[in-house]
């Protein structure tokens, strides 16, 4: 059996009930470019796109860590797509791990997609329900 990753991803996105990412002109769209370093915690009900570096917890509806992106800290989200580096736990209902991603930490998820080539270190336990606003141990 061979899995078509694109199809799986679309299916996963459909289940989450979104058209994947919001419009970048949206008021709730945060962009952290590769020249920005944030040492601290971020929280929003919108989307965060990371090409830069965050040292701290991010709590958002959705997060996209691009190839250049680096997050050292916990990620809490409804949808998390990781194509860069994450050192810390990921807690999201839907998690998509890209082929160039490096994740050092556990991934708590309800639906997980991993593209071939990703470097993962840590447990990937399934959770029936993940509420990002209620931090659990």
């Amino acid at each position: 059996m061979f899995l078509n990753i694109g199809a799986v991803r679309d299916q996963v996105a459909g289940r989450a009930g979104t058209s994947i990412w919001p419009d970048s002109a949206d008021d709730t769209y945060t962009i952290i470019h590769d020249d920005l370093v944030i040492v601290g915690d971020l929280s929003t009900d919108g989307h965060i796109e990371v090409s830069g570096r965050i040292e701290g917890t991010t709590n958002s509806r959705s997060v996209l860590v691009r190839e250049d992106g680096w997050i050292e800290g916990e990620i809490l989200a409804d949808i998390a797509e990781i194509r860069g580096t994450v050192v810390g736990a990921v807690r999201a209902t839907t998690v998509i791990i890209g082929s160039n991603a490096r994740v050092h930490g556990s991934i708590f998820h309800n639906a997980l997609t991993i593209e071939p080539g990703a470097q993962l270190e840590g447990r990937r336990p399934w959770r029936p329900h993940i509420d990002r606003n209620q931090k659990t141990a």
């Binding site: 949206d26 008021d27 709730t28 769209y29 945060t30 962009i31 952290i32 470019h33 020249d35 920005l36 370093v37 944030i38 040492v39 601290g40 915690d41 971020l42 929280s43 929003t44 009900d45 919108g46 965060i48 830069g52 040292e55 701290g56």
Partner: peptide, 19 residues
């Protein structure tokens, strides 16, 4: 292109940016 901290976002911490 500028990095954008959206209206919705709250940052508790320091920001360093060369751009």
């Amino acid at each position: 292109e500028p990095s954008i901290i959206s209206a919705d976002l709250r940052v508790v911490g320091d920001l360093h940016c060369s751009g």
